[in-house]
Simulated assay, not measured.
Amino acid sequence: MKNLGAGTWIWGTALALSLAFTAWYHNWSGPLTSAEVDAYVEQLQARSDGGDPAALRDLRSFLEADDGREFVMLNVIKLHTDPQPHPQTGEPTDAAELMGTYSSAFIGRLFRSAGHPVLVADKIGPFVDTFGVTERPDWTLTSMVRYRSRRDLAEAATYEGFPGAHLFKTVAIENTFNFPTHTRIQLFFSPGLLLPLLLFFVASLTHLVVMVRRQRP
């Protein structure tokens, strides 16, 4: 009975943590409504004093086509090679340092809504098997960032602290292109599956240790 009681607490705790993580990590609110899309786009228009009409149209189109699923944003970036003026002090600052300031602010916000980097990789060589393009910027790095939903992307874009952080990004980057993707093939565990598996693995080991100790004379 004692072992059963210990097991109940161990497995119950693992199950509760797993359910709590799953509830947080996945989108349970469904796709964006038309009213939500209008509200987010209006906020961005007001904040950017109209902004880039084409960019806002593209964003609206993406939000309106929301399927409620997670997605991964692909980013390809070329940082300035020369120091750039710091947005706050005006001092010449390395572009990587400026980008780091932006990333710290944005990724911190993203983590709170279950978003996270999937991949960050530096370019280490020339173009290979590349054709059909007229320009080949000397890209610096590429990254893939997971969003729980398009609603979270809209929330991040309209976050009150975003404009100040985003300024560091625009100063640091010379060229970039970005587009959202849905994963077709994935050869590694996502946190949504990995963490519950780890919790149950730890629970099984803990339960085994408890049983062994209690069976000792």
Rank of each mutant, 00 (worst) to 15 (best):
M1W: 10
L4F: 12
A6N: 07
G7D: 06
G7S: 06
T8S: 10
T8V: 14
I10Q: 03
I10G: 02
G12K: 02
L15P: 05
A16K: 04
S18F: 01
A20R: 11
A20M: 13
T22F: 05
T22P: 03
H26Y: 14
N27A: 11
S29A: 15
G30T: 03
P31M: 08
T33D: 08
E36H: 05
V41I: 15
Q45W: 00
A46V: 06
R47F: 02
S48R: 05
P53R: 06
A55E: 12
D58M: 10
S61T: 14
F62I: 08
L63E: 03
E64Y: 03
D67P: 04
G68L: 01
G68M: 06
M73R: 02
N75V: 07
H80E: 01
T81W: 04
D82T: 07
Q84A: 09
P85C: 06
H86D: 15
H86G: 03
Q88D: 12
Q88T: 07
P92E: 06
A95C: 05
A95W: 05
E97Y: 07
L98V: 00
M99T: 04
G100F: 02
G100V: 00
T101V: 14
T101I: 12
Y102K: 06
Y102P: 00
S103G: 00
S103F: 04
S104F: 12
I107H: 02
I107V: 14
F111D: 09
F111W: 10
R112Q: 13
A114H: 07
G115F: 05
H116V: 00
V118N: 08
V118W: 01
V118H: 04
A121R: 10
D122Q: 10
D122G: 01
K123C: 07
G125K: 06
V128A: 11
T134L: 11
T134Q: 11
P137W: 01
P137A: 08
T140N: 04
T142W: 00
V145L: 09
S149C: 06
R150Y: 06
R150K: 13
R150Q: 10
R150L: 14
L153I: 08
A154Q: 04
A157L: 15
T158P: 05
T158W: 04
Y159C: 09
Y159F: 13
E160W: 10
E160R: 13
G161W: 01
A165P: 01
A165I: 05
H166Y: 15
H166I: 04
L167Q: 12
A172G: 09
I173K: 04
E174M: 06
T176M: 11
F177R: 01
T181R: 04
H182E: 14
T183I: 15
T183S: 14
T183R: 14
Q186A: 11
F188M: 10
S190M: 11
G192K: 06
L197E: 03
L197P: 04
F201V: 14
V202Q: 09
A203L: 00
S204P: 02
T206C: 05
T206H: 01
H207E: 13
L208R: 10
V210S: 08
V210K: 01
V212P: 02
V212Y: 09
R213D: 11
R214P: 01
R216Y: 05
P217Y: 00
